[in-house]
Design a binder for these strands. Sequence first.
DNA 1: CGGGTGACTTTAC
DNA 2: CGTAAAGCCACCC
Length: 105
Amino acid sequence: MGDDFYFRVYEVIAQIPYGKVTTYGAIARYLGISRSARLVGMACAAAAGKLDLPFHRVVNRNGELTGKHNFPTSDFMEQMLTAEGVKLINGCVDLKNFLWEPEIY
DNA sequence: CGGGTGACTTTAC
DNA sequence: CGTAAAGCCACCC
């Protein structure tokens, strides 16, 4: 399991605060691979259902729940976020109030 | 080594 | 609103 890159992604996801979300682009930028937001999504898909991480707190740049199909039900992701207090507008996260980004040093 | 693929993003039409 | 294309890079044949 030489998922050196995936491991980084998982660490960031594990740091997403309760009631907040982050974007693939933000994670990619934090890891220094700002042009590979796709790989962040791949890492999530690869670990979805395997690792116990808040994948539901990862959305795309538009606040859309692009990964909902990877959950047991299509509304699982939305319900998890709602349960945490994250407001959704037409199926999209209100990033203006619930976006969290990892700090870049 | 090379080609296909993808929970992305942006630009363009 | 929609689709197309390109850029990007790790993973899996």
